[in-house]
Structure formats: structure tokens, C-alpha cells
Computed example of a mutant assay.
Amino acid sequence: MAKQLTLEHITVLAGTQPLVRDVSLSVRSGEIVALIGASGSGKSLTCSAALGVLSHGLQMTQGRILLDHQAMQPDELRGHVVSTIMQNPRSAFNPVHTMLQHGIETLRITTSARQTTAQDTIVQAMREAGLENPETLLKLYPHEMSGGMLQRMMIALTMLSHAPFLFADEPTTDLDLVMQARILELLHSLIQQQKLGMLLVTHDMGVVARLAHRVMVMSHGEIIEHASVEEIFTNPQHAVTRELVNAHLSLYDMELTNDMEFA
């Protein structure tokens, strides 16, 4: 299994306007790296550029992606090396395909599983993702499932792909607090059991504290700080990072001090 995914000097332009500037980062097997920052800071664009799925009018003008120090093309990464979990799971599913069809398509692209065994394989992944009565859910279309169920289904598809790395873009934003906690626990278990490397894109510092090992902070398309999760919460160096941490702490009627301990 691949050990490290590296993005080097990623630059994205909209015309002549730089939206992402010379961003470099790496994710190792079994590690969760949080990419944080305010909305519009360039977090999702960085991931989209690496996977070759930028919107029309945007262009990656510089940068390369390395898998264990070997250069890779974006189409070699998608689904095979990197699976994705998106903020709005409904946008990731074909509305005219059932869950079974989505599972079979994933298996067809990423493995050599036989059609006769595909359904059993999909059902097992759905169970591991915490979906009850998967045999019944296989018949459903995306509009017939809740957001939380679709997010779990997306995690099941990630399991089916056997991709060694995962890009999770705001994976709990549209879920209620109970479902958020369940999805976070599921992602944490997935990383531990399968030793995936995860790039977690978020602005939720609670999610960062719960999951991340390292943190990279983006502002105006650039990486402005890189540290362990403990250092980010106890001794942030950049004003933007301090603002993000203080905004999170204020929810608990706390503020950043120089002698804080991180539990």
C-alpha cells in the first residue's frame, strides 16, 4: 500500500487571478491532516486541482502530485488512489441510479470483482459503514435517503474502492449533532483499521480537535501555518489561526491563553 501522498507547489488561477498560490502538503498512511481556513481560502480548490476536477474557468498552472515520490496524473488518482467524501453527499450521487448501481460502478472501476459477488461485497461495506437493512437500501435512489444515510453510503463506497487516501471535504457540515458524532467516529475507525491517509478539509475546529494529527492553515490561497493539532490549539503563531481558535473556544465561554493545556 502507498505510504505518502504529496501535493507540491499547487497554483490555481481564474484568468490571471491567483486563487491558490504555491501550496504544498503531504499526507502519510494512517494520518489525518486537517486543512483549515475561512470560506474562500482555497481549501477545496486545492483538492479539486489535485484530482483534476476544477470548475470551468479555473486552471492549475503549476504543481504536481506525487505518490511515494512518483509523479501521478490526476486521472490516475481519482477513485484508485484517492477517494472523496463531499460536503453535500447528494451532489455526489447520480439521481437516476440506485445504491446498488453506485456500488457496482465503484467495484467495476476499482476492482476486478465478479458481478455474481458484487452485491454481497456492497452489502458488507454498507454494514461496516453503519447502514441498517442494507439489502433494502440497495433498491433506493438518492432522493429516498437522508443526508446522514448518504454520507454513510459514501463512506461505504470509499471502503469498496480500497483507495489508500481519502479527501473529506466538510464531511459533517449538513448533519445534525448526533449524526455528526457518528460520522466522525466512523471516519476515525476507518483510518485506524485500514490505515488510510486522510486530508480533512474543514472550518470546524471541533472536528479538527477530534480527528487531526497535523493542521495546515490556509488564508487567501496560501498556507500560513503548519503545526501539530496540539500546537495549533495551545500556541498558534499566525493571527488568522488565533482568530479561528478563539472563535471555537468562545463557544465554550473560553479564550486562548499562553498556559492552556490540550487534552
Rank of each mutant, 00 (worst) to 15 (best):
M1H: 11
M153R: 00
H188R: 15
M86E: 12
V207P: 01
E31I: 09
S29A: 15
M260V: 10
R28I: 05
L140M: 12
M60V: 07
M254K: 14
H248P: 05
L160W: 06
A239S: 14
H238F: 02
T172F: 01
V27D: 02
L25N: 09
E128M: 13
V96I: 13
R64N: 10
A49W: 01
F93Q: 05
R64K: 15
V245F: 02
D253E: 13
E8C: 09
Q180D: 00
E144C: 04
M145H: 08
H162A: 15
V207Y: 01
V178D: 08
S26N: 13
H248I: 04
L67I: 12
V123H: 06
K3Y: 12
E132N: 12
N94V: 10
Q17F: 12
Q193T: 13
G37Q: 03
A49M: 04
L77R: 07
G147T: 10
M216A: 13
G103K: 08
H226F: 06
T158P: 00
Q59H: 14
M149P: 01
S24E: 09
R210A: 14
H69E: 13
H143T: 08
T84Q: 12
M198I: 03
A14I: 05
E170C: 02
Q59V: 11
R214V: 03
T11P: 03
A163F: 06
T6C: 11
L45R: 00
L19Q: 11
V217F: 04
G221R: 08
S44N: 11
V207D: 01
K3D: 15
A181H: 07
V23D: 04
D75M: 13
T234E: 06
S91M: 13
L77P: 00
L187V: 06
E8D: 13
P142H: 02
V215G: 00
E243S: 14
G148R: 04
V229N: 01
S219W: 09
G197R: 04
S44E: 01
E222H: 12
R28L: 13
Q115H: 12
T117I: 11
K43A: 05
Q193Y: 02
A125D: 10
R127S: 07
L54A: 11
E76H: 11
H203L: 08
E31V: 10
H213T: 08
Q101F: 04
T6V: 14
K195R: 12
G42D: 02
M145Y: 08
V215A: 03
T11A: 08
M60N: 05
D176R: 05
S39C: 01
L186N: 05
H248F: 15
V123Y: 00
L211E: 08
A163Y: 06
M99P: 03
E185I: 05
G30I: 01
G221Q: 00
L19R: 10
T121Y: 01
G130N: 07
L186G: 07
I32P: 02
E243M: 10
I224P: 05
V201I: 15
